[in-house]
């Protein structure tokens, strides 16, 4: 067994020890994980984005236009200085404004028109009728401009029924995901670490 597997196994067991109760081994692993993750992120961000997208274009190719996002990016760090913190809002405003601008037609096309079109197929099949009914009643549940009484109230109640089916299905799949992660760790401990399974 190599050193990496041994360390990985010890740290895995440190974290599993939390199942018994909170303890210093778990806390050690927790803080170490957070520190390493942030360190990893800093390196990857700078080496694979800041350097090729900002440093090289400005200093190697003399592309001065790249100085604009560079300066706006630098403004972000001014959040730590109360008097100049407002400058970071300009950078945020650019990202949020531009993001809002591109999202309007995209949402309209991909999430509204395309989805509505897909619900308006032939109603010869019972499933298509159920789909149309579920979409309309679910949407009616989110219609808050009027009190949920009468026809709207009934529709919203049917909508809740369909949403419960969706939440139930999502719960089922959540169980599946979490169990898979546990299987992955069990395979590591039993296979790579203890050599019991192949």
């Amino acid at each position: 067994m190599d050193l990496g597997t041994l360390i990985a196994a010890i740290l895995t067991l440190f974290i599993f020890s939390f199942l018994y109760k909170d303890n210093p081994f778990y806390k050690f692993a927790e803080y170490l994980l957070v520190g390493i993750s942030v360190g990893y992120f800093i390196v990857i961000s700078i080496k694979t984005t800041v350097v090729p997208k900002l440093i090289f274009p400005v200093f190697r190719e003399g592309d001065l236009l790249c100085l604009i996002p560079g300066i706006l990016g630098f403004f972000m760090f001014l959040r730590f200085f109360p008097k100049l913190a407002w400058l970071s809002r300009i950078s945020m405003a650019l990202i949020i404004g531009a993001g809002a601008g591109v999202s309007i037609p995209a949402m309209m096309q991909a999430q509204i028109f395309a989805q509505m079109k897909a619900s308006m197929g032939s109603y010869a099949s019972i499933n298509n009728i159920i789909v149309a009914l579920a979409v309309i009643t679910t949407l009616s549940y989110f219609f808050f401009s009027r009190e949920h009484k009468g026809a709207l109230g009934t529709s919203a109640k049917i909508g809740v029924f369909f949403m419960m089916l969706f939440f139930g299905a999502t719960f089922g799949y959540t169980v599946m995901s979490r169990v898979t992660l546990l299987i992955g760790r069990a395979q590591f401990l039993l296979g790579d670490f203890l050599g019991i399974i192949k």
Binding site: G97, S103, A132, T137, M163, F166
Partner: peptide, 29 residues
């Protein structure tokens, strides 16, 4: 369940989110 009622309910939620996002984006701009 996955392909019919759950899918359709998620679609209803998606359309709702889409409408909400467009309204919020316009308010931001």
């Amino acid at each position: 369940i996955l392909n019919v009622p759950s899918m359709a309910a998620r679609r209803g939620i998606l359309i709702g989110i889409g409408l909400g996002s467009i309204a919020t984006s316009l308010r931001i701009i």
